[in-house]
Structures are given as C-alpha cells and as structure tokens.
Amino acid sequence: MTTAPAKAGWRFRQPSVIPGFGLTLGFSLAYLTLIILIPLSGLVWRSASLGWSDFFAIATDRRTVKALEISFGTAFIAAAINVVFGTIVAWVLVRYRFPGRRVIDAMVDLPFALPTAVAGIALTTLYSPKGWMGALLAPLGIKVAYTPLGIVIALVFIGLPFVVRTVQPIIEEIDKEVEEAAATLGANRFQTIFLVLFPGLAPAVVTGFALAFARGVGEYGSVIFIAGNLPYVSEIAPLLIVIRLEEYDYAAATAIATIMLALSFLMLLVINLIQSRTRKRYG
C-alpha cells in the first residue's frame, strides 16, 4: 500500500509498508473503549448527575473527609519510608556483591506477586499483640494492628518494589567516573553521595515515591485486615466506598470514588511537574 507523496498538511499517520494498522488499532481502541473508557465515564457521568449540592454534601461529610485524610496521609508516610529504605535497598543490590544477591533481588518483587489479601492476613497475624512482631512491640507500648500504624505497615509492604525498581536502573547507570572525579576533587564519600549522586537520582526517587503513593492511596486488600476499620480513625477511603455500596448508597460511593480519582490525577500532575523541573535542573 504505497501512498502518494506526502502533501503538506495534517496527516493521521506516516505511510508504512507494514500491514494491519487498521485492524490492530481498531481492535485496541474498541477493546479499550468497552473495558476501560465506557465504565470510567459512567462513573464520572453518574457523579455529575448527582447535582452540585448533593455532591458537596457527601464530599464535606466528616466521615468522607476523614477517610480521605487517612488514605492520603498513610500513603504519604509509607511512600516516604519506602523512599529512604527502597533507595538503600537499591544501592545495596547494585553496588555490593554478596551471596544470595539474586535471590534477594527477586524477592523485592514479592509484593507485586503476592495477592493483597494474603499480605493482609499475614501482616495482621504478625503485628497482632500475640504475633511475632506485635509481641516484640507491645512492651514498648507500640500498637500496630488495628491502628493507623498498621495501615502504614501494609502500604510500606505494597509500595516497596515501586521505589526499588525505579531507582535501581538509575544507580546501575551511574558513571563511575563521576564519582572518581568528585573524589579526586577532594569530596569525601558522604559529599560525593549527597551532593553529586543524589541530584541525579532525584527524578527516579520522585517517580518511585509517586508510584508508591498512588498505589497506596487506592490500596484495599492488604489494608482492610490490619486497619481495624474504625470510622474516623482507621477507615480508608476505598473501604468507605465499599461500605456505601453495601448500603446501596450509590450516590455516596460514586462521589467518593470521583473525589479519589480527581485527587490522584491532580497528584500525578503535580509530581510530573516537579519531575520535569528536576530534570531540567540536573539534566
């Protein structure tokens, strides 16, 4: 299928000798529309048909606000913890050689592979007052299971691979010469790491944080077992959606879901902006 020489002007696609464009793009778009776009726009449409005052009433309901605060707050703390430890894990995996490194590297993906409900009951058992970790922490007066701290623990588990897998390839790419240059110019190791290497890692760390945070905000399965699910204290937004659905309060479920979606997209937008800024600054 040769095409006439390109005329100046708008053209949907570049000419190519490879067949199947119409078939594959057509099928992809149809499937995408049926599975993702129609259901999602149904949500937005239902939410819009609520009317502004109803929507506002649900959005400012104290239980809704608290649930959103808890979801976003715990996800933020967990992502911050993962940024610190995830970066250390990535550094150790890339830079140091030790027996079992490959096994540990593979293990980092466990939270991707382990069903969230399994993680949920395992963590709850671990951190319940009689569990291995819970019994250790109880004498210190630290309660994890059935408190917001439990939510953080579950979200740290869920988010870890996002940070490690985003930062790891960037550490692998670091040119040793940069470090040698810094060292030759008199920087000590601490200065080299924090002033020379970290700025280069910053975009990856921010991306890892964003991915872990976004996943944490929406997480359900691993959290509901350990959280205790006390309204206003340890009830996350996705759970409140489920509760409203079970009460056949579709309006409230829809409104909370729409707020969550909007906040998540806003957050991703902000993080994209931060990222493009850091990229510009550090090339």
């Binding site: 993702i36 949500l43 659905l245 479920a253």
Partner: peptide, 19 residues
C-alpha cells in the same frame, strides 16, 4: 490511556461495573 487502570483503585475498578 492504556496505563490508566494502574492509577485507579481496585475498588473503583469494581465499582464502575456495578454502576
């Protein structure tokens, strides 16, 4: 758009079909 489901809470993924 293809990546969209990754940024949607699983609960919402179920909710859209209930709606």
């Amino acid at each position: 758009l293809i990546d969209l489901p990754f940024s949607v809470s699983p609960v919402i993924s179920g909710l859209v079909y209930v709606l």
